[in-house]
Design a protein around this nucleic acid. Structure first.
Lengths: 201, 201
DNA sequence: CGACATCTGTTGCTTAGGCAACGGTTCGCG
DNA sequence: CGCGAACCGTTGCCTAAGCAACAGATGTCG
């Protein structure tokens, strides 16, 4: 089985309610356990037990706990941005909204503190954030001011990584400013990049 | 089917996890809907939808929404008392704990406000509370100071109804005292009844 | 070293839930 | 009155989840 492997993490709709429910419970279980112990100290048995699901059911959804982690992080970040309806449209402030989302997500995400680093959790978070932010940027750019696809992809990647890097550094800073302040600073910093190269080729 | 009919509401343990989960979801769904509209304005379709379950699944657990209401209220009150580990033992204060539980439950229970009265919801609550409180009293009396079974049953019923009636009146009072204060008053009022007739025949 | 414990993937069978469809009731509205 | 809409209670078929059991890997303690 392993229907939810990596790439098909977010086919939320159209799915059997039982499947969506089970995956949701596995996500919640892992998130809960991450508040108590490190990722590599968590067994699949624990996750299944915490979720109130059978261990065999875990394997019918994910091949291993790493894939679950990736899907959990991706789904949660995607959900956060979707709930806030973050998108790049004609009115400004999109970059600020994106940066706010990333900052808030990093703050709330268990397993990411001032301590620890280089773990599997950080990697999953980074991947998920960059991928989702890239998607938002690309969709907005294509809809608003079309440009060369290669340029668009490069630009989106650059901005996505820039925002993630800034937020990642920010969240690990002892006496950091507010997320709001950080997001505004990032917006001012990056906006020129987004609008400068429009329609260039 | 209809495995959870009325009397066998609380066989929680030993049951297939899927069954416990579904019933829990139906309980939560009904409780949620009761915060929004009156009981007889709620359809089974709504309950199933709110629970994220199929309508047919509802019928495999309960014959109608009245049974669900009874089970939901009973389970919730029983769970509240169990979590607080309320029981009649050698040290005093049992009646206060019981009264506190009843007051807190009535306060939190949706569908019971200063308004409305004589509805199906009130009836279910009354039945559940009296039954559970009677059980607690009977178990405690048998364990602590055995007496004639008939007397015990009558005494337990009397006290249970007294507490319910007091709490019912209290919760519908405009400017009521705290639950703590009310429980203490009831304890002082009823304790003599509980201890007076011990070992009588 | 062996004994014991825990976790891992995987299997086959059983059971609960999803779904579509049915006929039947009630209600409101033109 | 007829019509549609919504709810009811039930059915049969299909799919996901529970469960027990397996062999194998790892780890730890005496």
């Amino acid at each position: 089985m392993h229907d939810a492997g990596e790439s098909e993490c977010r086919k939320d709709a159209l799915l059997d309610p039982r499947i969506r429910r089970s995956r949701q419970m596995l996500h919640d279980a892992l998130a809960q356990l991450l508040t108590q112990k490190e990722f590599d100290k968590i067994s699949i048995q624990e996750i299944a037990e915490q979720a109130g699901l059978n261990r065999a059911t875990f394997y019918s959804h994910y091949p291993d706990k790493f894939t679950l982690l990736n899907c959990m992080v991706g789904t949660r970040f995607h959900g956060l941005m979707a709930r806030r309806n973050v998108q790049v449209n004609d009115c400004g402030g999109a970059l600020k909204a994106i940066a706010m989302g990333v900052c808030d997500f990093l703050i709330d995400m268990p397993g990411v503190g001032v301590a620890a680093g280089g773990g599997q959790v950080e990697g999953s978070i980074q991947m998920a954030i960059v991928e989702v932010v890239q998607g938002i940027l690309l969709r907005g750019m294509n809809r608003h001011e079309p440009r060369d696809p290669v340029d668009a992809k490069t630009l989106a990647a650059t901005i996505a990584w820039a925002i993630y890097g800034a937020a990642y550094t920010w969240v690990r800073t002892e006496e950091r400013c507010t997320a709001e302040h950080m997001a505004e600073a990032l917006d001012r910093l990056i906006s020129p990049m987004l609008h400068a190269g429009a329609s260039g080729g």
